[in-house]
Simulated scan of single mutants.
Amino acid sequence: MKFERTLLLLPLFLLTTVSQAQTKNTRVGFVNVQKVVAAVPGGGPYLDLRKRVDTDLAKREANIRQLTLKANRTRTKADTDALKKAQQSYANAQKNYQSRLAQAFKPIGKRVDSTIAAVAKSSGFGVVLDTEVAARSKLVVYANVAKTDLTPAILKALKK
């Protein structure tokens, strides 16, 4: 009988726990990392490299799409080999670019990350997302930009 009573009370306990967890306000903020990086001394060269990398990888992706269509249509060994070669070249380029970008970001990364963390913490935000990444991935359906955009506060903190 005691076990049955416990089973009956368990859902009520879980409901009260969930509502309490939801009342704790974990604020989610957004930052335009591109603008922040551009404002940091040394950020310009990193952004230029990022743009060149994105352009090159986009061209390679387009080439792979074309080669995929052709290889699927013709099914010849030459077209299949060309596709494999393009895919391998893309993978190698991507790996090379990742290390170059990481190296270029290293001198400015600590300042960018620490400033974002400090502003977010002092403003009461528990989570901060990159605006561009959130938009591109469709991770966020709605956000009140006036209340969630930390970019101006971070840019102001960087000028100090």
Results as ranks from 00 to 15, higher is better:
Asn92Gly: 09
Ala78Pro: 06
Arg73Thr: 14
Ala82Thr: 05
Ala82Lys: 15
Arg73Gly: 05
Gln66Pro: 01
Thr115Gln: 04
Lys84Trp: 00
Arg75Glu: 10
Leu57Trp: 03
Gln66Val: 10
Lys84Tyr: 05
Arg52Tyr: 02
Asn72Cys: 03
Ala58Met: 11
Gln94Val: 08
Arg100Asp: 08
Phe125Arg: 10
Gly109His: 10
Gly109Gln: 08
Ser89Thr: 13
Gln103Ala: 15
Val119Glu: 04
Ala71Met: 05
Lys110Phe: 01
Lys77Thr: 13
Gly109Met: 06
Leu49Phe: 07
Glu61Arg: 14
Ala118Ile: 01
Ala58Gly: 05
Phe105Leu: 13
Phe105Met: 06
Lys51Ser: 12
Lys77Asn: 08
Lys106Ser: 12
Gly109Val: 05
Asn63Gln: 15
Ala62Asp: 14
Ser122Pro: 01
Ala117Arg: 07
Arg52Ser: 15
Ile116Lys: 00
Asp81Pro: 04
Ile116Cys: 01
Ala120Ile: 00
Arg50Ala: 10
Lys77Asp: 11
Phe125Pro: 11
Arg75Gly: 04
Ser123Glu: 12
Lys95Gly: 04
Gln88Ser: 08
Arg60Lys: 15
Ser123Gln: 13
Leu57Gln: 08
Ile116Ser: 00
Lys95Cys: 01
Val119Cys: 05
Ile116Leu: 01
Leu57Arg: 02
Gly124Tyr: 05
Asn96Cys: 02
Ala118His: 05
Thr68Phe: 10
Thr115Asp: 03
Lys121Leu: 05
Ala93His: 04
Tyr90Glu: 07
Arg52Thr: 14
Asp54Pro: 01
Gln87Met: 14
Arg52Gln: 15
Lys85Val: 12
Leu101Ala: 11
Pro107Tyr: 01
Arg50Gly: 00
Ser99Thr: 11
Ala118Met: 05
Ala62Lys: 14
Arg50Tyr: 10
Lys95Val: 03
Thr74Glu: 14
Ala58Lys: 15
Arg75Cys: 05
Arg52Trp: 04
Val53Glu: 08
Arg111Phe: 00
Lys59Trp: 11
Ala104Pro: 07
Phe125Met: 11
Ser114Ile: 02
Gln87Pro: 06
Ser123Cys: 01
Asn96Pro: 01
Arg60Tyr: 10
Glu61Gly: 13
Ala117Asp: 06
Ala102Pro: 06
Thr74Arg: 09
Ser89Gly: 12
Thr74Ser: 14
Arg60Asn: 07
Asn96Phe: 06
Ala71Phe: 03
Gln88Thr: 12
Thr80Lys: 11
Arg65Thr: 13
Ala118Gly: 03
Val112Ser: 00
Arg75Gln: 14
Gln94Trp: 06
Thr80Pro: 02
Ala120Cys: 09
Val53Gln: 08
Ala62Val: 06
Asn92Phe: 03
Leu83Val: 05
Thr76Asn: 07
Ile64Lys: 10
Asp113Pro: 00
Val119Arg: 02
Asp113Asn: 13
Ala78Ser: 11
Ala104Leu: 09
Lys121Arg: 15
Lys110Thr: 09
Ala58Phe: 04
Gln66Ile: 08
Ala102Phe: 08
Arg111Gly: 00
Asp56Gly: 12
Ala93Ser: 15
Ile64Ala: 13
Lys70Ser: 11
Ala104Gln: 13
Arg111Tyr: 00
Glu61Cys: 03
Phe125Gln: 09
Ser114Asp: 11
Ile116Thr: 02
